[in-house]
Write a protein that binds this DNA or RNA. Structure first.
Lengths: 139, 139
DNA sequence: TCGAAATCATTTGCACAGAAACAAGCTTGG
DNA sequence: CCAAGCTTGTTTCTGTGCAAATGATTTCGA
């Protein structure tokens, strides 16, 4: 008579990751309704690194070609980024922050920090740092 | 002269969560191509709890009404779950595992455990348990 | 130098994921 | 008992996210 192995969904890392992500997305959407988390990530990266080709940008924020295209299209529609042809390589589409996009990022970045803090709020300071460093090793 | 606050995307909990989730989804898809992680979560919950109404089931796996409907529809198309009218409440749609669905879950559950292990593999045993418990508190 | 291989962007198809609006059915307070 | 309010399920819309196929361009090796 062996005991059932008992696969507990609530203990699976994938399920817990999904739920934590859900909560984080909700906090972000409430704090910064103007853009989504992925859109904000793109603005942040462009702010850090400056203009880049669409594909380079995608790699820099861990989005595949099809995904980054959609995100860039929506950001362009919002007037937060602008695309231009690269004269040196005609396949490339250079993506850059517009002044509006740079301003939006500058104004919302404080709030984005608060979003991260609120997401981590149930943990103590040490635990927060520990969690992020453990997660970073699973990348 | 104050130093720039320096919002580092790579240190933000939301971004790290997204990247870890990406890696986990890739591991799962390679190990169990028959269904997705969300679909498997539904099978697991039905296996644990038995038949439920579609909305109940959605709450039990943290999916909103629109999402659980799509997932159930696709599982039904695969023949892994079946829906039936609830005679006691005509609004309700009861969702149950089919024999095929139960068998698929039984056969793949070992592999699903391995997926969780592989996702957590970069960490030591203690770290793994710690990570999951920290994450669980952010739910 | 020229053709194969690699890179870049796009498109299509599928699968979540949540918000909002709606219809139908159940429940309950007055 | 019955209207108001709640629950259940559906549809539509927007936004990720990945795989695979395609076409254009660039690069690199023989």
């Amino acid at each position: 008579m062996t005991t059932e192995p008992a696969y507990r969904l609530d203990d699976q890392i994938g399920y817990v990751l999904r739920r934590v992500t859900q909560r984080h997305l909700a906090i972000f959407a409430a704090a910064i309704p103007a853009v989504t988390t992925t859109q904000f990530a793109v603005l942040a990266r462009l702010s850090e690194t400056g203009p880049a080709s669409q594909n380079q940008l995608g790699r820099a924020v861990a989005m595949d070609g099809a995904t980054i295209k959609g995100v860039v299209d929506r950001l362009a529609r919002l007037g937060l980024v602008a695309t231009s042809a690269d004269p040196a390589d005609r396949r490339r589409l250079t993506v850059a922050l517009t002044p509006t996009g740079a301003e939006l990022f500058a104004h919302q970045v404080q709030r984005a920090v608060q979003v991260s803090q609120e997401t981590l709020a149930p943990l103590g300071r040490d635990e927060q740092a520990l969690l992020v460093s453990l997660l970073a090793r699973l990348t």
